[in-house]
Computed example of a mutant assay.
Amino acid sequence: MPKPNRRTDLGLLVLRAGTGGVLFAHGAQKLFGWFGGHGLEGTQDAMEQMGFRPGRQSALAAGAAEAGGGALLAVGLATPAAGAAVAGAMAGAVSVHAPAGFFVTEGGYEYPAFLGFAAACLGIAGPGRYSLDHALGHRLNRPWVMAAAFTVTAAAASVVLRRRAGALGNGPEQAAPPGAGNVPG
């Protein structure tokens, strides 16, 4: 395997900063009402309507995964855990938008899927040389951390999505409900 070079590290930095910044902004909309968001109260109500119960805890979890995971990705700290947390949150967002199809222009899941894939790829690939993980000797960026983070996230996302399907009156075997509506932030 070729040794990463400065261009690769620079590319990872730019991808981390851009993806992490976007995710942080979305999480801050949910948690604090920043950037035109609905804040925790509005997000709580929306989460309840979308079948995520309890709504307040769901809003906190989604907001923390997006804002916290985004911030950690941006600086390259605990990159596997940050990527896994964001990927899990985006799985929930995809379930909301899936009934509208793929393209975001129709309300589809294209955008959250892309953010989830980008975060997962960063969690797997690692942050590169220009990161806090690198400066700290990769203590929080080890293969076992990646395996544990993605395993826990997959298990948690599975539970959340099954509960959501049950709350909406769908069987746990159904991936997404019809008529998801708009998602704040």
Rank of each mutant, 00 (worst) to 15 (best):
F35C: 09
F35Y: 14
G36E: 13
G36D: 14
G36Q: 10
G37A: 12
H38Y: 04
G39E: 04
L40T: 10
E41G: 12
G42I: 02
G42R: 00
G42Y: 01
D45G: 06
A46Q: 04
A46V: 10
A46C: 03
A46L: 09
E48P: 01
E48F: 07
Q49L: 13
Q49M: 13
Q49W: 11
M50L: 11
M50Y: 03
M50E: 07
G51E: 04
F52C: 03
P54T: 06
P54Y: 06
G55W: 11
R56K: 11
R56A: 14
R56N: 11
R56H: 13
Q57C: 10
Q57G: 15
A59S: 12
A59N: 03
L60I: 15
L60H: 13
L60R: 04
A61K: 07
A61R: 06
A62D: 13
A64F: 15
A64I: 15
A64T: 15
A65K: 00
A65Y: 00
A65N: 00
E66G: 05
G68D: 03
G68C: 05
G68F: 01
G68K: 01
G69C: 08
A71N: 08
L73R: 00
L73E: 01
A74R: 06
A74D: 14
A74T: 12
V75N: 01
V75F: 14
V75S: 08
G76M: 09
A78E: 11
A78L: 11
A78Q: 07
T79C: 02
P80L: 07
A81R: 01
A81H: 00
A82N: 00
G83H: 07
A84W: 02
V86C: 12
G88M: 07
A89K: 03
G92R: 01
A93D: 08
A93K: 02
A93H: 04
V94A: 05
S95T: 15
S95V: 10
V96Y: 00
H97P: 08
H97K: 10
A98H: 04
A98G: 03
A98D: 08
G101D: 13
F102L: 15
F102Y: 11
F103N: 08
V104M: 12
E106C: 02
G108Q: 12
Y109D: 12
Y109G: 06
E110G: 08
E110H: 11
Y111G: 09
Y111I: 13
Y111V: 14
Y111L: 14
P112F: 00
A113L: 15
L115F: 12
G116P: 10
F117Y: 09
F117A: 14
A118N: 05
A118K: 01
A119T: 02
A119N: 02
A120D: 06
A120I: 12
A120E: 06
A120N: 05
A120Y: 06
C121S: 15
L122C: 02
L122M: 03
L122R: 00
L122F: 08
G123H: 00
G123C: 03
G123I: 03
A125G: 03
A125E: 10
G126K: 01
G128V: 09
R129M: 13
R129W: 14
R129Q: 15
Y130I: 15
Y130P: 13
S131T: 10
S131N: 07
S131W: 05
